[in-house]
Design a protein around this nucleic acid. Structure first.
Lengths: 319, 319
DNA sequence: CACTTCGACGGGCAAATACTCACAAAGCCT
DNA sequence: AGGCTTTGTGAGTATTTGCCCGTCGAAGTG
């Protein structure tokens, strides 16, 4: 028999383990445990509580979702997120948008269910488009949908993946498209544009949004920004040289999540991106290619929420 | 996305898992869960209850309870066991399988965690079935699961309590069902069966198993063997007259743990039971009714490991 | 199309559980 | 020894949980 074996502490811990076993495994009530161990009910409660606080009780949830919640918790801790959701990946198609779109739609739906007026601001992109498609039709004339960035290029042609209009249509809410192109031709033009009453108003709405959903764009040659023609190859190279790793509503940032001070960003007409606000600003993004962009956005607190896939969450934590 | 992924049931189960995680792992109250998931408190309660009833929640107590360790040590000494585990009993339900199933699952898990290939052989019975249910899902394609005995009666109907298939499914490992019925009709038939290539191969796997878990059957009128229809009342009487007190994978033995030389055993098709091998052969059994059967198995070194309950351990040592 | 059945929902309530507080016993320092 | 801190205890109370039951809507049926 070793020394500490019967020390008061050890005996008490044994009792705690026994109480914890009777409670969690055998399903007794604390009253029954008290009777069986011959102590008062309050003591039994304390023993059970001790078993928990001393980590004697290990609980695990045996469902794929559980792993996702573990990952979500870890991401929240690591990056100080107010909200984080991780969706199971299909191993064969880990970056399918459907999963995160469903999760993002659920988040959106919760906000829209409110009877009080809510302002929802949206970015653009495939992920958000898919999100809106997952939202059931509902009637919410009390809310307002506002776009955080323009819908067209300098030449007036419309950008695809505009989620604002579809969302507003789907839920029957008034909406505010962003009344500017994505990029101004030069900084001077931009400041003139910004003075317009409608623009000011829209930006104010964005600032007051009760929920904002944005996509995250990577900065390599598969960048949405490049593919959709908002930036030329030359511009992409230039940005890459400045350390750009990602963009949110066209604001280009570096690997620390700092909006880069450069010619391109000086032409970005989108609503300003507040750093780490109080209000939910949630990124909806997944995919190997977007990893550096997502990581930087989290590090720089450009967003305080994330909806992503299991595979991406794992990579984010590993890196 | 596979078919069932978004079926209503699956979604509900996901929510249940989520609720269970938030409740048991994250320590939320049901009210908080309700708010987070956007449902009423009552629904949250139902989800948590479902997570429990669907066995999504696994609890184990991580503490060597002194009394149980004493009993385990005493049993090991007395019967020369290589391993012995005693789990606390609930005084009002001393023979609950849950407790020993959790312990056996933990043992099994230790073996399965190995990156090298392991061969695990299993018997049948309620205890083993419960054990497999306690095992978390994991991915172990490197291991092999093999059954020590058949899964069906002479007429081809399947026996319940088959643990091999569930285990193999749960961990995604290849498995070898035992390619014979439990009993042959007569010894001649048996020796013909034994010559089959598949049978030889399966038996060899059993002999090389790195871990074997078996149940223990008593031989009175509550015998699993009798209740499940593998032996008639007449056969049971005959065996009792020959001094049978228990059976392991259908091999019937007497109170000294000797396999009885009799007509019944000559028809048993199960893999041979090596006496006191080097490799772990662990019995998972508890209950007043099984006492003589367990004691004899230990005395005769039919097994070299035991997982049982506190109450049973005490009785074994007392007798 | 009306009717029945079934399952889910949420309100309400009683039981179970967690927390607070005041007190007493035990260890500890001076 | 005496005061001090620490730790456990029981009583009382607030919170949380489990369950019953009436209601409602969807799906099935004649």
């Amino acid at each position: 028999m070793n020394a500490g074996r019967f020390s008061p502490d050890a005996v008490r811990l044994d009792d705690a383990a026994r109480a914890g076993w009777l409670y969690y495994v055998a399903g007794n009530t604390q009253d029954e445990i008290a009777r069986k161990l011959g102590v008062s009910r309050q003591s039994a409660q304390r023993l059970v509580a001790m078993a928990v606080s001393e980590k004697l009780i290990k609980v695990r949830v045996d469902h794929p979702i559980a792993r996702c919640m573990d990952l979500a918790g870890a991401l929240s801790d690591r990056f100080g997120l107010a909200s984080c959701e991780v969706v199971p990946s299909d191993p064969d198609a880990p970056d399918l948008l459907t999963g995160i779109a469903i999760a993002a739609a659920a988040e959106l739906e919760r906000t829209l269910k409110s009877p009080e007026r809510r302002i929802v601001s949206l970015g653009t992109g495939r992920a958000l488009k898919a999100t809106v498609e997952q939202l059931p039709r509902m009637s919410c004339p009390q809310h307002v949908i506002v776009s955080r960035l323009g819908n067209m290029m300098q030449d007036g042609s419309a950008s695809p993946y505009n989620a604002t209009i579809s969302l507003a249509e789907r839920i029957g809410a008034p909406h505010y498209p962003y009344p500017l192109p994505v990029l101004a031709r030069h900084p001077a033009e931009l400041s003139a544009m910004r003075n317009q009453e409608a623009v000011q108003n829209t930006i104010r709405l964005c600032e007051r949004a009760d929920l904002s959903l944005v996509g995250i764009g990577q900065m390599d040659r598969s960048a949405p920004m490049f593919l959709d023609g908002f930036a030329s190859a030359a511009e992409m190279d230039e940005l890459a040289a400045l350390g750009a790793v990602g963009e949110i509503t066209s604001w280009v940032y570096d690997r620390e999540g700092r909006i880069i001070d450069c010619a391109f960003n000086e032409r970005v007409a989108s609503a300003p991106l507040p750093r780490a606000g109080e209000r939910p600003m949630i990124a909806v993004a997944t995919g190997e290619a977007k990893l550096p962009a997502i990581r930087a956005a989290l590090v720089g607190h450009l967003v305080n929420g994330l909806i992503t896939s299991e595979a991406t969450a794992e990579r984010l934590l590993a890196g």
